[in-house]
Each structure stands twice: as C-alpha cells, then as structure tokens.
Design a protein around this nucleic acid. Sequence first.
DNA 1: TTGACATGCAACCGTTTGGTTGCATATATA
DNA 2: TATATATGCAACCAAACGGTTGCATGTCAA
Lengths: 111, 111
Amino acid sequence: MVADEDKVFKALADASRRQLLDRLYAKGGLTLGELCEAHDMSRQAVTKHLVLLEAANLVVTVKRGREKLHYLNAVPINEIYMRWIGKFERQRVQALFNLKQALKENDHEQA
Amino acid sequence: MVADEDKVFKALADASRRQLLDRLYAKGGLTLGELCEAHDMSRQAVTKHLVLLEAANLVVTVKRGREKLHYLNAVPINEIYMRWIGKFERQRVQALFNLKQALKENDHEQA
DNA sequence: TTGACATGCAACCGTTTGGTTGCATATATA
DNA sequence: TATATATGCAACCAAACGGTTGCATGTCAA
C-alpha cells in the first residue's frame, strides 16, 4: 500500500506524465501513437512514461488489435487525497493559525 | 506558477520528505536536530530535503538564535488540490463509468 | 504472402537525485 | 575567552531518471 502510494507520487512528479494524464482526462481511449503526437519526444520516451503511469495504476490499457488504448484511472489520486492530502487540507486554516501564533510567541521571546 | 507546481510535486515525490512533512504536521516548530533524530540519515541529508521543501514553500522556517524552527505550510498542497487533483477527483465516478463503457464497447467490437 | 503500421524490448548516455564526508560559521554557556 | 552546540556550505559519489537509437514482434490489408 505504501509502496503503491510512493509509485503514485513519483509518477505525478514528472510534468510530461502529468500532461499525459491531462490528455487522457480530456479524452480517453487514445493510442500510444495519438499520445505521442502532442509530445515533443520519441515514442519510446512516451512509452516509458506510460509504463510508470500504468505501474502506479493511474492509467489502464486495453489492447485492440495492434493498438493499445489508454484510459485514465483517477482512483489512486483519490486514495492519496483521502489518506494524505486531505489530512493537510483539513488542517490548513488551523496550521496557518498555529504558524502565526508561533511567530508571535517567537517575537515575544526575542523581544 | 507552473514551475512552483512542479516543485511541489517533486518535493512530495520522496518518501523521506513526506515523512518530514508528517512530523511537522504532528508537531510544528521542530529544529533541524530534532527532525534528524527520527530519520536514519545524516543531518546534511535531512537539510537537503528541508531545502527542497522550503523551495516548494511546503515548509516555513524561523531562526531563533542558533536554532532553526520548522513549520508545515499546507497552502501549496491545497493549491495543487484545487487546480489539479480536484479536477480528477470530481470526475472519478464519471471516469470509471466511461472506462466500463469503453471496455463494453471493446468487447462488442471483438465479438 | 508481403509490406506497412503500431507497439515492445534493450542497450546506451548525460543529468539529476539522494546520500556521504569534511570543514566553516554562528550562537550559547562555563 | 574558551568550548560546546546548531547549523551552513561544498565537494564528491553511486544510483536513478529521462531521454535516445536500433532492432524485434505482432497485426492489418493489398
């Protein structure tokens, strides 16, 4: 589970891969060739990115004849949100308050 | 803005850095030394991680004497959620539906 | 069957990353 | 002032990353 989480974070760490997800968000079922068209790199580079996205379960594929259709799977993103980002988000206002409070206390200590 | 987004994603890509954020979430105002205690690496390694977290604006620091106090800043996480993850999250159910639909259509084509 | 098309696999390569060690600097305290 | 403590800076290194090129495999269509 934690290993999967790490895969997802690492998969999201690259701008090209986030772009691929954006494209699959806009339109599912694209082939490798179609995904390559919009990216300024070799087909093999795109393939490598897609392999990582698949490993992180962010992309699901279906083979149709000699083509491979790609679909976005947002579930892992949801999971990360639920068990990680949401925690910070829910505490955002509180954390800001704590920070300001700490800075204020620090001011007093230095004064 | 996009460059910042990239910094945040890259900062979150490392498990050690996420751990540091977790610790600062649990308790703010920790010094570098205190942050090092729980991690099985050299102080300088932790420093490097904190530098990246600061550059991504995920951690804010205050110097107090010879100590440096670290605080979590969840704002960038919130921004990423707002303008990136939320998009996918909102479409999650719809995307699953689309995927199933596509698989069904694919079945029909192959049959 | 033959040729074109879509994808897969593997070797290679420069750069970035995550870590180390050694030394320098700044601050607190006896 | 002298010494211990907390942090900063820089050089170095192995491994991972993001990309390339070349070739192999599988599938459609004439």
